[in-house]
C-alpha cells in the first residue's frame, strides 16, 4: 500500500475531528454567549487554531483541547454582559395533538425558562446545558472543563436551584 502523504493524512484527521466535535463546540459557545453568529465564528477560529497546532495535539486530548481553546477565547475576547438565548423546543415545534391553550402556556413557560437560564452564571449554565441537551456525562464535562466530578455536581444543583427560584417567581 503506498504511504499516505503527511498533508493528506493531516487533512483526513482534521475532517474526522471536525465531524466529531464541530456541533459540540458550537453548542458550547452558544450556551456561553447565546449568540449564534459568534458561535459559528468562534468555532471556526477554534478549528483554524487546531489546524495550526496539529503537530502538537494528541488524539486522546483533542476534545478537551478544543473546548479549552473555545472557553479561553470566549472569556478573553467575547464575553457578553447580557445573554439572550433562543433555543428551539421540540415540544413546541413538534406538538403531539395538544390544545391551543396548552401550547400557549408551553410557549410562555419556554420563554420564561430561556430568560431564567440566561440569567445564571455562564460556566454553570454551560455545564447544565451540556448535561441536559448534549447528554454529556459528569465525567465528560469534568474532563472538558478541567473540574472534578464533585464540582460539576455542584454546578448542576446550583443551576437547578437558581432555575427553580427564577421560574417560580415568574409564574
Amino acid at each position: 500500500m503506498p504511504l499516505m502523504r503527511a498533508e493528506e493524512r493531516d487533512n483526513k484527521w482534521f475532517r474526522k475531528v471536525f465531524d466529531e466535535y464541530y456541533k459540540a463546540i458550537r453548542n458550547f459557545v452558544y450556551y456561553l454567549s447565546g449568540d449564534l453568529s459568534l458561535a459559528d465564528d468562534l468555532t471556526q477560529d477554534v478549528f483554524l487554531f487546531l489546524w495550526e497546532e496539529r503537530d502538537k495535539v494528541k488524539d486522546e486530548t483533542v476534545k478537551s483541547y478544543l473546548f479549552t481553546i473555545a472557553k479561553n477565547r470566549y472569556f478573553k475576547y467575547h464575553q457578553k454582559k447580557v445573554v439572550r438565548l433562543n433555543f428551539i423546543s421540540k415540544l413546541i415545534t413538534e406538538p403531539d395533538h395538544e390544545s391551543p391553550e396548552f401550547m400557549m402556556e408551553l410557549k410562555e413557560f419556554d420563554h420564561k425558562l430561556q430568560v431564567a437560564i440566561a440569567g445564571i452564571p455562564d460556566k454553570t449554565r454551560a455545564i447544565f446545558l451540556m448535561s441536559r441537551i448534549d447528554q454529556m456525562t459528569y465525567s465528560e464535562i469534568a474532563a472538558i472543563m478541567q473540574l472534578s466530578n464533585k464540582a460539576v455536581e455542584k454546578h448542576m444543583s446550583k443551576a437547578l436551584q437558581m432555575l427553580r427560584q427564577k421560574v417560580d417567581r415568574k409564574l
Binding site: 452558544y30 458561535a39 433562543n86 433555543f87 428551539i88 415540544l91 425558562l113 441536559r132 441537551i133
Partner: peptide, 8 residues
C-alpha cells in the same frame, strides 16, 4: 423541557 431544546 430543557431536554427538548436544540441550538438553532
Amino acid at each position: 423541557h430543557i431536554s427538548s431544546w436544540r441550538v438553532p
